[in-house]
């Protein structure tokens, strides 16, 4: 099994991308959250947005926590866990801060687009200016959105907004909306690939 799991984001209880994601979900819509951890996003989407949610999570302690949260959590590896779901089964498929831990990136993205009408993907931007500074200074970056040391990081892939958008173009995925946040969770409007620490995308086929 791989170790991909939603990376814990420092001290913030409510992760900054959750607000954005919540604002994109309409009442009664179905959501599949990949790497749902303890199910807090789904719990919020169900309580605030009236969504119907399911989550996939690999770690048993997180599965137990999600069950305690009353979440429809399905224990499994998201790299092969989507195979059993029907085409277009969900309105939204969310992959929050996890794409960088996935080995088969294109496969997971295409599976998300298969089982969902829309994919919501967030990831840390490796080209964030502080990360660039760290590399310029000769060290791998450690930041709010990349909180690990190089030797203990679950992250397998280091990529930037531009890299991701190039992949979307290659896979013919339509970027419906993009929101970029800085380390404080504030929206970045200019020089996103330089000033943005975390990117959140809505994708369609």
């Amino acid at each position: 099994m791989t170790t991909q799991t939603r990376t814990q984001n420092s001290t913030q209880d409510e992760r900054s991308d959750f607000d954005l994601i919540a604002s994109w979900i309409q009442a009664g819509e179905t959501v599949l959250d990949l790497g749902c951890s303890d199910g807090s996003l789904l719990k919020r989407l169900q309580a605030e947005r009236g969504a119907r949610g399911w989550g996939i999570e690999l770690d048993t302690d997180n599965v137990v926590a999600a069950i305690s949260n009353g979440i429809n959590v399905i224990q499994g590896n998201l790299e092969d866990g989507l195979a059993g779901f029907e085409d277009g089964a969900f309105d939204h498929v969310v992959l929050s801060r996890t794409l960088q831990t996935v080995r088969h990136t294109e496969y997971v993205l295409s599976e998300m687009m298969r089982v969902g009408r829309e994919a919501v993907v967030s990831f840390p931007n490796f080209a964030y200016w502080k990360n660039r500074m760290a590399v310029m200074a000769g060290r791998m970056p450690v930041s709010e959105d990349l909180p690990y040391e190089w030797f203990d990081t679950p992250n397998l892939r280091f990529f930037t907004l531009l890299d991701f958008e190039a992949l979307c173009a290659r896979m013919r995925l339509v970027i419906r909306e993009r929101q970029v946040l800085d380390e404080a969770g504030q929206q970045v409007t200019e020089e996103a690939n330089f000033l943005g620490s975390l990117a959140v995308y809505r994708l369609r086929r």
Binding site: W54, N72, Q75, G76, A89
Partner: peptide, 11 residues
Amino acid sequence: VKNRQSVAYAE
């Protein structure tokens, strides 16, 4: 899940 029924699964 296909039926949109409630299910938790532990493997």
